[in-house]
């Protein structure tokens, strides 16, 4: 589904990712861990199409297509989803209008007719229930005045609406209390199928108690320094990153 080869990424003169190799197959769940500043968000943003970063080397294919040849919206329509570490506030744009635009563009791309207002609102209600989001949120400005937890729920809600093939969740668990964490994790687990795939970027083992990864990667200074099964997350939690860094 996603294959990344020798990916190098810079911002200005600064090299941030230094040769990333990663393959994600349908049905898999990956976890990426790593200390602050190691490049996790950069990797996620570059894959989503953020233009402030420059790809200086390597390649990536998604659903058989050259990822970097596509605009962010084309990637999204093909089924790529990024759950932002810092979701963006858009005052004046309601969640309902935002999602209506997103769903209609997606349906247009799939040659499906636009949803009626009734169908759309029903879908909104169902998906909000998945993340236990209060229905009153539909009329609020996107992320405006939301608490940290509400912003993250809103990311998972959008993911539920768009039903992506591959979702990368960038520290969706940071700043969440145990209840919110459970809701977010349940949301992911409900959406999980044999066809789609998830990448969770996290610092903590605790999310991985709810979302069990098949493969765990440790990213350090722009390189994946270790890849193993789910027990690697426990090892990171117990021994810290230094353990792996020193070994390398």
């Amino acid at each position: 589904m996603l294959r990344i080869k020798d990916l190098c990424v810079s911002i200005g003169e600064k090299e941030i990712l230094r040769g990333i190799n990663l393959e994600i197959k349908p049905g898999e769940t990956h976890a990426i861990m790593g200390p602050n500043g190691s490049g996790k968000s950069t990797l996620a943003s570059v894959l989503a199409g953020r233009e402030t970063f420059t790809v200086t080397g390597g390649s990536a294919t998604f659903m058989g297509k050259d990822l970097f040849a596509m605009t962010p919206e084309e990637r999204a329509r093909l089924g790529f989803f990024l759950g932002f570490q810092y979701p963006v506030e858009i005052p004046g744009l309601t969640i309902v209008n935002f999602m209506k635009a997103a769903i209609n563009e997606q349906r247009k791309y799939k040659n499906l007719p636009a949803l009626s207002s009734g169908e759309f609102l029903k879908m909104m209600r169902e998906k909000m229930a998945v993340v236990e989001m209060d229905p009153s949120f539909v009329g609020r400005g996107v992320n405006v005045g939301f608490s940290g937890g509400e912003k993250k729920r809103n990311e998972i809600f959008q993911m539920a609406m768009l039903e992506p093939m591959l979702a990368i969740l960038d520290e969706t668990d940071s700043g969440l209390d145990v209840d919110a964490l459970r809701v977010v994790a349940q949301g992911v687990n409900k959406l999980k199928t044999k066809e789609n795939a998830f990448v969770v970027i996290t610092h903590y083992q605790r999310l991985l108690n709810y979302i069990i990864p098949d493969i765990v990667h440790v990213l350090y200074k722009g390189q994946i320094i270790k890849t193993a099964g789910k027990n690697l997350a426990l090892e990171v939690e117990n021994k810290g990153y230094d353990h792996f860094i020193n070994k390398k």
Binding site: A48, G49, R50, E51, T52, T71, P72, E73, R75, A76, R77, F81, L82, F84, P87, V88, I90, P91, G92, L93, N97, F98, A101, A102, E105, Q106, Y109, G141, Q158, L162
Partner: peptide, 29 residues
Amino acid sequence: DEMGLFYLRSRGISLAEAKMLQQMAFVED
């Protein structure tokens, strides 16, 4: 707002439409 545009586009909304939404949001009040 570049970050706002990227956020909208990352949900499959075209650049033109994202700009439109941002302008409508600007005048909403």
